[in-house]
Design a protein around this nucleic acid. Structure first.
Length: 573
RNA sequence: GACCCCGUAGCUCAGUUGGAUAGAGCGGCGGUUUCCUAAACCGCAGGCCACAGGUUCGAUUCCUGUCGGGGUCACCA
């Protein structure tokens, strides 16, 4: 397993402290934390030792600092803390070389997950319903988590598990007979219109709703005519979805749906009947378990005999294990389904499936304020279109002013628009709700996706103007505080990627990239006022090479991180 | 009513798993371009970390309670 520069120094510092204190290094390592930048890079607080040693923390810290010696670290006591600082050398060269030698793979670790498999259920829209803007949460989260696990050497089985089976098909089918135009059966937009109308009518009219249910029962019974119609709707939807995914640069290992488990329901129910058992309740079939007070039972069959999504998820979970032998099986699904997954996972456990605890519900919060004035949901495609329009104005300006060159301004606009929208979502911690705001999603200033892309593009161009990234350089020359600050952000990527994987939290990567871009922009801008602080400083080839090497490391970090987030990295913008 | 999230600057959000002076973007005010891309950079203003207890050397962070917001609670997915 490869070790990052940062974790290596942290481990060495912890080991030295542990030796001095006569305790296991593992106990100390958790207590070694990043220091306030003014004080150093690593810190160890001595407060907890005060009681046992019967000495004041500052005295303990001073004593420890005196006795420790770790190659590559400057150790010093500040008050009750023992702090360690990375000196310019060898630290600077180590960080730059780690990033540059890894290139676009920087931050990853192919050995970390070698031989392991993760199944990820994400995006999973319902067929015949529009893809609303809120779908970007599961879609981008899942996509990023997949990218991150891949970078850590896992085999990833991404599954777009379509909601292609259920009563809503009855609604579309029955609605199509009323409102549909047979000539437009392959028009996704038309199906959505039909669904919206039918859904509204079913809510007001019980007879209409019953017709839809009846249609779904025909589907479950294998009625050829019903299934033929369903298949047409399904094909139309999938074609429509693929266009949107292509726009976002997302591909799935598997596109399948709940219909996959049609015909396998009885087998699953038989299996559950053996352990832990099933029973009838209010005409429906439920899993026979002791439920908490106020907890609804797990429903396997409705009182009309048709199955429910819990039944299908139970079948799907097993099917996925049989196909992939996963070490983890993730469900990137909104928080409001927490109870459903808790119950499904519990049922798997009660069925004595040994892998039941490898399943994880990666829940995320809601996006508020999504309705348009007419009360309809904002569509993802519309947001992408609007963003591209706004971006293209700025792109045209920049091209005309000669600031950038591009063969394809439209493609560039699309890349930047995608960056804005993807990052606007991914920067949020997944558990928290956030508020959708057109102006915020479509703003390209401040800490946004385009900010990161812009920082990357500037790095690319300053490297080009400097004659490319140097093969050799003298790291000892990089002594400006802004240079050292930038290095410390570049250094963090491997740790952050690992944390993001463990916590299923791409926002950690997103936030780090902001810190990298911010440190880079600050450094870069110094040269506007002081020519001797330019990257491509004149009359000092050695210094210029060193600075270009650092910029190259920053460029690599941004490119690698943005790629993990699924955000394009244009060279000009 | 029960259970699950959440409450941090005017707004939108971070806060490295309990440590040093709580940060960023937007918005506001003031600056920076004959000079590597101003989609950038710098400065100023803005905080009872919802409230009250508790644990601890130390709490925005952990526990309990109260208040406030959102969600879920068997035949939709």
């Amino acid at each position: 397993m490869s070790t990052s520069v940062y974790s290596r120094y942290r481990a060495a510092f912890a080991q030295a402290l542990a030796n001095a204190l006569g305790v296991p290094a593992a106990d100390i390592e958790a207590q070694v934390k990043p220091a306030e930048p003014a004080h150093g890079d690593l810190s160890f607080a001595t407060f907890p030792l005060a009681k046992a040693q019967k000495k004041a923390p500052p005295a303990i810290a001073a004593g420890l600092a005196q006795s420790l010696s770790v190659p590559g670290l400057e150790i010093k006591a500040v008050g009750p803390y023992v702090n360690a600082r990375f000196p310019t050398l060898p630290f600077t060269a180590e960080v730059i070389d780690a990033a540059r030698s890894a290139g676009i793979r920087y931050g990853g670790d192919e050995d970390a997950g070698r031989g392991k498999t993760v199944a990820i259920d994400y995006s999973s829209p319902n067929i015949a319903k529009p893809i609303g803007f809120h779908h970007i949460r599961t879609t981008f989260l899942g996509h990023c988590i997949a990218n991150i696990y891949r970078a850590l050497g896992w085999r990833v089985e991404g599954i777009n598990y379509l909601g292609d089976w259920g009563k809503q098909f009855g609604l579309v089918a029955v609605g199509f007979q009323e409102y549909g135009d047979p000539a437009r059966i392959d028009d996704m937009g038309h199906l959505v219109e039909v669904y919206v109308k039918a859904n509204k009518r079913a809510e007001a009219e019980p007879e209409f709703d019953e017709k839809a249910r009846a249609f779904f029962r025909r589907m479950e019974a294998g009625d050829a005519e019903a299934l033929k119609l369903w298949n047409q709707f399904r094909d139309t939807s999938i074609k429509g979805f693929k266009k949107i995914y292509a726009r976002m640069g997302i591909e799935f290992e598997h596109i399948e749906g709940e219909s996959r488990y049609q015909g396998k329901m009885d087998a699953v129910i038989d299996q559950i009947a053996k352990k832990p058992g099933v029973k009838e309740s209010q005409g429906a079939l439920i899993v026979d378990l002791t439920y908490a007070e106020n907890e609804p039972p797990i429903l396997l069959k409705k009182n009309d005999g048709s199955t429910l999504y819990a039944t299908r998820d139970l079948a799907a979970a097993q099917d996925r294990y049989e196909r992939f032998q996963f070490d983890k099986s993730l469900y990137v699904v909104a928080q409001d389904q927490a109870l459903h997954f808790r119950q499904v996972f519990r049922a798997l456990k009660e069925m004595d499936l040994p892998w039941a605890d490898r399943t994880v519900h990666v829940a995320f919060g809601r996006i508020h304020g999504m309705s348009t004035r007419k009360g309809q949901v904002v569509q993802l495609n519309d947001v992408l279109d609007e963003a591209r329009e706004r971006v293209s104005v700025k792109v045209r300006e920049n091209v005309e002013a000669g600031r950038i060159q591009t063969d394809d301004a439209d493609a560039l606009s699309e890349q930047i628009a995608l960056g804005a929208i993807a990052f606007g979502d991914l920067k949020h911690k997944r558990a928290s709700d956030y508020t959708f705001d057109w102006d915020e999603v479509l703003s390209f200033e401040g800490h946004t996706g385009p900010y990161l892309q812009y920082a990357h593009a500037r790095a690319v161009n300053v490297l080009r103007k400097g004659g490319g990234a140097p093969a050799s350089y003298d790291a000892a020359l990089l002594t400006l505080p802004e240079e050292q600050a930038l290095l410390r952000e570049i250094m963090r990527l491997p740790e952050v990627v690992r944390d993001a994987a463990e916590q299923y939290e791409p926002s950690l990567v997103a936030r780090l990239l902001l810190d990298v871009a911010s440190a880079l922009s600050r450094y870069y801008t110094l040269g506007n006022q002081e020519r001797d602080k330019r990257i491509n400083v004149e009359g000092n080839d050695a210094l210029r090479s060193a600075r270009l090497a650092l910029i190259d490391a920053a460029r690599v970090t941004l490119a690698a991180g943005l790629t993990l987030l699924g955000i394009p990295t244009p060279d000009n913008m």
